[in-house]
Amino acid sequence: MSDGQFGTLRYEIRHGGAWIILTRPERRNALDPDLISDLGTAIDTAQRDSRARSVVVTGTEDAFCAGADLRFIQSLDSPAAIVEYFLQPLTKVLRSIRDLSKPVIAAINGHCVAGGLELALCCDLILAATTARIADGHSRFGLLPAIGGANALTRAFGPYRAKEMLFLGEAFTGEQLHQLGLVNRAVPAEELDTVTSALVATLATRSPSGLARMKQMVNEGGEVTWDLAARRELTLTEAHLAAGDPGEGLAAFTEKRVPVFGSRR
């Protein structure tokens, strides 16, 4: 994929990051097989793209992602078909976002519901317009968060707030979720692009291998005991120290200059 429009999304390099912009505004960027496939291709491309030091996922017009395209879900003739043609491919793509070695930022510009929230929760940082409407929403349709959403909300909020969001399906604003700790930064809608761009530019100055291993530490550390996490972090640190970036960082400190990190891992 080169820069430009690609089916249901647009891929751009800006400020040292790959921007993946969902472009199905007529369906509020709802997830269907085409969008899931394009998103997977975009993530794979961003992983290989040496110009991209981080990745941004965002939407168009008034929507980030409205979750599953329910018209497509209704067209499937059995629960097994829903699993095979929707849930399994989506699980694969969301796992690739979690496993991506580069930081992934969700820039929630508008409506973010159900599968759209699960998409955002797989990212490393969440920025949101203060007025964005964000909800789980599955309970309103008798559905379940099938792609790790319940687990992610529980880790973010604890069980009681997670159950409230899951059971009631009510929408929160970006500002409310910032106050509750789910959203890293909430800004006026007209400033979201600028704030996201500044964050992308900052990440481009950091050690790629360092960010990759920090992401791995956090993702793994939340799932194991402290002792096991400490051992794993030591192993990752030993590998990182053998790469070029720590030496460059220390040299820059000694020489009183800005470090120039590479992409060696």
Rank of each mutant, 00 (worst) to 15 (best):
D99M: 15
L100Y: 03
L100P: 05
K102V: 08
P103C: 10
V104T: 09
V104Q: 05
V104F: 06
I105Q: 06
H111Y: 09
H111W: 08
A114T: 08
A114R: 02
A114N: 04
A114D: 03
G115F: 02
G115V: 07
G115I: 03
G116M: 05
E118N: 11
E118W: 09
L119Y: 12
A120P: 03
L121V: 11
C122S: 15
C123K: 13
L125Q: 10
I126M: 02
L127S: 06
A128W: 10
A128S: 15
T130E: 15
T131Q: 15
A132E: 10
A132N: 10
R133P: 02
I134K: 01
G137D: 00
H138A: 01
H138V: 00
S139H: 04
S139V: 02
G142P: 01
L143F: 04
L143N: 02
L144N: 08
L144M: 14
P145G: 06
A146K: 07
A146V: 08
I147V: 14
G149C: 04
A150K: 09
A150F: 04
N151K: 14
A152T: 06
A152C: 02
T154K: 12
T154F: 08
R155E: 11
A156T: 11
F157N: 03
G158P: 07
P159N: 10
Y160I: 09
R161S: 09
K163G: 06
E164D: 15
M165K: 01
M165A: 09
L166E: 12
F167E: 12
F167K: 02
L168T: 14
L168F: 14
G169Q: 08
E170D: 13
